[in-house]
Amino acid sequence: MSHDDRTAHSVGEAGNPALRIDVLVSVGRHGLTERARRADLDARALELALQLGEDGRRLNLEVCHAGAPGDDTEAALRDYLGMGLERLNWIHTRESSDVLPVLRDYLRQRDSGSEPRLVLCGMRAEEGEGSGVVPVALAEQLGWASVPGIVAVETVERASDQWYAQVLQALPRGQRRRLRVRLPAILGVDVAAPTPRQSAFGPARRGILEPVAAAGDLQPDASLAAWPLMPAKPRPKRLKIVTASNARDRFKAAAAKADSGGGKLLTDVTPQQGAEAIVALLKEEGVLR
């Protein structure tokens, strides 16, 4: 969807309340050096949120991180500040705490009711378990909608006393799907979302990491304690298993050239007939739109 379509809906609704966006960010880790940095997907989520504000829409943007204090973490969080934020809420937890109730209480506390509300976050964290369950679990506990694989938020509009967001979802094979989501909603941002802007050093230094106390008691993450994470083992490569009972078949399997064999061959046909056969195949596969 182009930029013009988006502005046509949203600009000029100045009387509308500001769009409330919470971005949940986490600490990422560089794949090679293992150095702490902003998490790629979370940075994309923040980028989406910042771009929503560039349309001239009034935005009430808050960024939040829940985690244990540490130098590494602070450096990584400053990467987000360098994207153009003034402050970032940091809920201090312990290394072993479960962030789910903490985040749930945080989001619930800051619910002001009437204004449209979006929560953006990456689909998966880079550190820790990284199972991608947090957005779904948060949405379930809060009773909100949860949509994964978001690449763009097109419009946010009101219809019969309800706020709806029109979003684009990335499908496999580069396809996109348009969805209308009732707000409040938690949107998981996909890798196909726009690349995050560069983090600038000055704003990163100037920005404030604001410590926020967790609402309730910190609860330990029992399952993570019981089943600790360990360095990943290399996955074995799957071997081509030939279940032939005799040497001839085994040899044929080992020496076979990759040919599908059962192909249909159309010789001595007019181009029209050939094209008909191809169109039939394309239709059968459903790639002809």
Binding site: E34, E127, G128, G130, M230, P231, A232, K233
Partner: peptide, 14 residues
């Protein structure tokens, strides 16, 4: 079961 973490650098046995 062995679960691969989001970044692919950790495994969890459970």
């Amino acid at each position: 079961c062995l679960c691969r973490s989001g970044s692919g650098r950790r495994d969890q046995s459970r």
